[in-house]
Simulated scan of single mutants.
Amino acid sequence: MILEVAILNVKLDEGEEFEKAFNEARLIISSMSGYISHDLMKCMEQTDKYILLVKWETIEDHEIGFRQSTEYLEWKRLLHHFYEPFPTVEHYQALN
Protein backbone atom coordinates (compact mmCIF):
# COMPACT_ATOMS: atom_id res chain seq x y z
CA MET A 1 0.00 0.00 0.00
CA ILE A 2 1.20 3.51 -0.90
CA LEU A 3 0.03 6.66 0.85
CA GLU A 4 -0.24 9.77 -1.32
CA VAL A 5 0.08 12.97 0.73
CA ALA A 6 -0.80 16.42 -0.60
CA ILE A 7 -0.93 19.65 1.38
CA LEU A 8 -3.58 21.78 -0.32
CA ASN A 9 -3.41 25.55 0.15
CA VAL A 10 -6.72 26.83 -1.16
CA LYS A 11 -7.07 30.43 -2.29
CA LEU A 12 -8.34 32.75 0.43
CA ASP A 13 -12.07 32.48 1.10
CA GLU A 14 -12.59 29.71 -1.47
CA GLY A 15 -12.62 26.83 1.02
CA GLU A 16 -16.37 26.32 0.94
CA GLU A 17 -16.45 26.14 -2.87
CA PHE A 18 -13.41 23.84 -2.84
CA GLU A 19 -15.16 21.47 -0.43
CA LYS A 20 -18.23 21.33 -2.70
CA ALA A 21 -16.06 20.63 -5.75
CA PHE A 22 -14.09 17.97 -3.86
CA ASN A 23 -17.33 16.25 -2.90
CA GLU A 24 -17.94 15.77 -6.63
CA ALA A 25 -14.30 14.95 -7.45
CA ARG A 26 -14.09 12.23 -4.78
CA LEU A 27 -16.41 10.11 -6.92
CA ILE A 28 -13.80 10.22 -9.68
CA ILE A 29 -10.81 9.16 -7.62
CA SER A 30 -12.71 6.48 -5.71
CA SER A 31 -13.67 4.80 -9.00
CA MET A 32 -10.05 4.36 -10.15
CA SER A 33 -8.24 1.04 -10.31
CA GLY A 34 -5.90 0.58 -7.34
CA TYR A 35 -7.70 3.14 -5.17
CA ILE A 36 -8.18 1.97 -1.57
CA SER A 37 -9.44 4.98 0.40
CA HIS A 38 -8.93 8.68 1.03
CA ASP A 39 -9.29 11.33 3.73
CA LEU A 40 -9.57 15.06 3.18
CA MET A 41 -8.84 16.96 6.37
CA LYS A 42 -9.16 20.66 7.11
CA CYS A 43 -6.50 22.48 9.12
CA MET A 44 -7.69 23.83 12.46
CA GLU A 45 -5.22 26.73 12.51
CA GLN A 46 -5.41 27.82 8.85
CA THR A 47 -8.94 27.64 7.51
CA ASP A 48 -7.95 27.53 3.83
CA LYS A 49 -5.46 24.68 4.26
CA TYR A 50 -6.25 21.00 3.79
CA ILE A 51 -4.40 17.71 3.65
CA LEU A 52 -5.39 14.97 1.23
CA LEU A 53 -4.37 11.42 2.09
CA VAL A 54 -5.06 8.76 -0.53
CA LYS A 55 -4.23 5.08 -0.17
CA TRP A 56 -3.32 3.30 -3.40
CA GLU A 57 -2.35 -0.30 -4.01
CA THR A 58 0.76 0.84 -5.95
CA ILE A 59 2.44 4.11 -6.89
CA GLU A 60 1.74 3.27 -10.55
CA ASP A 61 -1.99 3.18 -9.79
CA HIS A 62 -1.71 6.85 -8.86
CA GLU A 63 1.02 8.13 -11.17
CA ILE A 64 -0.03 6.26 -14.32
CA GLY A 65 -3.50 4.79 -13.84
CA PHE A 66 -5.03 7.95 -12.38
CA ARG A 67 -2.88 10.85 -13.54
CA GLN A 68 -2.75 9.65 -17.15
CA SER A 69 -6.46 8.84 -17.35
CA THR A 70 -9.25 10.81 -19.01
CA GLU A 71 -10.94 10.93 -15.59
CA TYR A 72 -7.99 12.97 -14.31
CA LEU A 73 -8.88 15.75 -16.76
CA GLU A 74 -12.22 16.17 -14.97
CA TRP A 75 -10.44 16.05 -11.57
CA LYS A 76 -8.17 18.86 -12.75
CA ARG A 77 -11.10 20.90 -14.05
CA LEU A 78 -12.93 20.61 -10.74
CA LEU A 79 -10.04 21.25 -8.35
CA HIS A 80 -6.79 22.66 -9.72
CA HIS A 81 -7.93 26.28 -9.99
CA PHE A 82 -8.41 26.43 -6.19
CA TYR A 83 -4.72 25.92 -5.28
CA GLU A 84 -2.22 28.67 -4.51
CA PRO A 85 0.53 27.55 -4.72
CA PHE A 86 0.04 24.28 -6.57
CA PRO A 87 0.59 21.40 -4.12
CA THR A 88 3.53 19.07 -3.96
CA VAL A 89 2.45 15.45 -3.84
CA GLU A 90 4.57 12.84 -2.08
CA HIS A 91 4.22 9.08 -1.67
CA TYR A 92 4.96 7.07 1.46
CA GLN A 93 5.10 3.40 2.35
CA ALA A 94 5.12 1.66 5.70
CA LEU A 95 8.42 0.29 6.93
CA ASN A 96 6.99 -2.63 8.88
Rank of each mutant, 00 (worst) to 15 (best):
I2W: 14
L3G: 10
L3N: 06
L3E: 07
E4S: 02
V5D: 07
V5N: 05
A6C: 09
I7H: 15
I7L: 13
I7K: 15
L8R: 03
N9K: 14
V10C: 13
K11G: 03
D13G: 15
E14Y: 12
E14F: 08
E16S: 14
E16C: 10
E16T: 13
E16M: 07
E17L: 07
F18C: 05
F18N: 09
E19N: 10
K20Y: 11
A21V: 15
A21W: 01
F22A: 13
F22L: 13
N23W: 03
L27M: 14
L27Q: 15
L27S: 12
I28V: 05
I28K: 00
I28M: 09
I28S: 05
I29E: 01
I29N: 01
S30M: 07
S30N: 12
S31F: 02
S31D: 11
M32L: 06
S33N: 12
Y35G: 02
S37A: 04
S37E: 05
L40I: 01
M41E: 06
C43T: 04
M44G: 10
M44Y: 08
E45P: 07
Q46C: 05
Q46D: 09
D48H: 12
D48Y: 12
K49D: 02
K49V: 11
K49N: 02
K49H: 04
Y50C: 00
I51P: 02
L52Q: 10
L52D: 07
L52A: 06
V54A: 04
V54Y: 05
K55L: 11
W56T: 05
E57K: 11
E57D: 07
T58M: 10
I59N: 15
I59V: 09
E60R: 07
H62I: 02
H62S: 11
E63S: 14
I64A: 05
I64F: 06
G65N: 09
G65E: 06
G65V: 04
G65D: 10
F66H: 04
F66K: 03
R67A: 11
R67H: 13
Q68W: 06
Q68H: 11
Q68V: 09
S69F: 03
Y72W: 05
L73H: 13
L73V: 04
L73Q: 14
W75V: 00
W75A: 00
K76V: 08
R77A: 14
L79V: 01
H81L: 00
H81Y: 04
E84T: 01
P85A: 01
P85L: 02
P87Q: 01
P87N: 03
T88P: 02
T88L: 15
T88K: 11
E90T: 15
E90G: 03
H91Q: 07
Y92C: 14
Q93I: 08
Q93V: 09
A94V: 14
A94P: 06
A94F: 06
L95H: 13
L95M: 09
L95D: 15
L95W: 12
L95G: 14
N96D: 11
N96K: 13
